[in-house]
Design a protein around this nucleic acid. Structure first.
Lengths: 289, 289
DNA sequence: AGCACTTTGTAATGTTTATTACAGGATTGC
DNA sequence: GCAATCCTGTAATAAACATTACAAAGTGCT
């Protein structure tokens, strides 16, 4: 009931006889719809006879064809009712704008192909309050660096957004060393300044992490953590939405990791804020201090 | 064959008798799985008798129950075989982080409930080069305002991001009038400064547009365009991802609207850029000047 | 090569299932 | 308040169906 039938069939392909395999392939090719019709339809699609279908489902462990169908329907039901599936398959009018669909697909694919270890490792790194975190972004991604910094600043100390003129960066580079983490947001048309900054920081011993597009910024060569995101959309622009999704997952991860610290900081900031501007006191709302 | 059956049922709900409606609801609640079993199962789930189910499918235009099922299976098949659906539903293990699922769901829901007119109207407004566009955001959403401004600046003239100290804002407020558009990004813990700015701009005759969370910022009262986004995630934070998705759709829309202008500007900027920093010339890449 | 065993399809069978005829009950209109 | 019409379920029916028994074809082993 729990294990997806499709996997089971894949794993046990060898146990089937040759005609049963044809049945299995027909089912997998059009899973699970092929199994929801009649035995005869299934048999014809697979190019075998009805009894072979029956033997096939029998070998899968079902006492009869109807039990097999019940299993398929139950699987379908639970999977179609998950919020994610509901969004992408039937349900609503395959919601609208192709641009939006593409955005969703990008985010999904991004996380599908994101090495889980990279994400967790980076979260752990960013959660380490003994390190100072510097964030930097390019022309378009600077906004993301700011956004991430604004959140991180609340859950931990030692967060620095590198902004403004290139001249200013150099000052900040001086202090960077092995106790620092540089989180770079960069998409193509990789700006030379960003690359230079990251490389210099890396040479001085800082850990470099990179959130980038799939083409891989040159920064990737020296980065310890590389998180690539899908950016293609039907527009002359690239989409940075997936980058932001990564940023939000990072923020959520660090918040979870530093839960108690974060809460204390939030409370302290809240108090501070009320002291300075009592007009906002008592407002409803999240932890958005 | 083309029109989704689910929509058809929704639209024609009034044509059904009361018990047929129960059948319709049972089917919609578990679409399309409920229709893939036997008539008796369907009838029991709907709390009606078998003939009612038959009359229901008859009224939908099917000569018999099996034709009805065939239609359901065909729909399922084509929808499950779309690349997007294939990846998200069955097959793989419904990959992933619940946080990511929630993000996707937020974006999808945001656009589902976004009044299409608001979006198009705002795009048209932002495409009007006779207007000056001012962007402003709160603590967390300022990054989005910047991001949007960075893109808009390339496809049109007269784009201004309002940043920095509150004192500076006042100067800029002075010049704002009926020829200006103020695009505000704001989520809860709505900052009083932002509200004040927007209200003042509105009083001086500027058109105010607002991208906000579902709770509706107080700015909404005076805004001509309000685009609400879903922000809830399993984290103490709200997610601004849907806001960014809206921003990207706006950017893409304005770019499409001002295509020729945008291309000219891009070329001009490219030339300018090469003049100043020839090292980046000839790089591969998008229109990211 | 011949025997045993497995695999596969044909055809018959008994069950399930969709379908239909009909009657009781509700609802509407006059 | 009565009649006509429309709903709805019960029960009978006929068709479709899964299932099984069996025989033929194929495969491997000695």
């Amino acid at each position: 009931m729990e294990r997806p039938l499709l996997e089971d069939i894949r794993d046990r392909l060898d146990e089937f006889t040759s005609t049963e395999k044809r049945a299995a392939h027909a089912l997998m090719a059009n899973y699970p719809v092929q199994g929801l019709g009649t035995v005869a339809q299934f048999a014809e699609a697979a190019g075998v006879s009805s009894p072979t279908i029956l033997r096939f489902v029998g070998r899968l462990g079902f006492p009869g064809f109807s039990e097999f169908q019940k299993k398929l329907r139950n699987e379908l039901e639970s999977q179609l009712n998950s919020p994610l599936a509901r969004s992408t398959t039937l349900g609503e009018q395959t919601s609208g704008d192709p641009h939006v669909s593409q955005l969703l697909e990008n985010v999904r694919e991004t996380f599908e192909h994101l090495p889980k270890g990279e994400l967790d490792g980076l979260i752990r790194l960013l959660s380490d309050e003994k390190k100072t975190v510097h964030l930097i972004g390019g022309r378009f991604t600077d906004g993301l660096a700011r956004y991430t910094a604004a959140h991180l600043r609340i859950v931990r100390s030692g967060v620095n957004h590198i902004a403004g003129q290139q001249g200013n960066w150099l000052d900040q580079l001086l202090g960077i060393g092995p106790k620092d983490v540089v989180l770079v947001f960069d998409i193509r048309r990789y700006q030379t300044e960003i690359i230079q900054f990251a490389e210099a920081a890396g040479k001085q011993g800082a850990t470099v992490a990179l959130v980038t597009d799939s083409w891989m910024s040159p920064v990737g060569r020296i980065a310890s953590f590389v998180l690539p995101a899908r950016v293609a959309v039907p527009s002359p622009w690239d989409s940075s939405l997936s980058l932001m999704a990564i940023a939000e997952v990072l923020i959520a991860g660090v918040t979870r990791q530093n839960q108690q610290n974060a809460q204390e900081r939030m409370r302290a900031l809240e108090a501070l804020r009320n002291e300075i501007d009592p007009s906002t006191e008592g407002r409803l709302g999240g932890p958005d201090i």
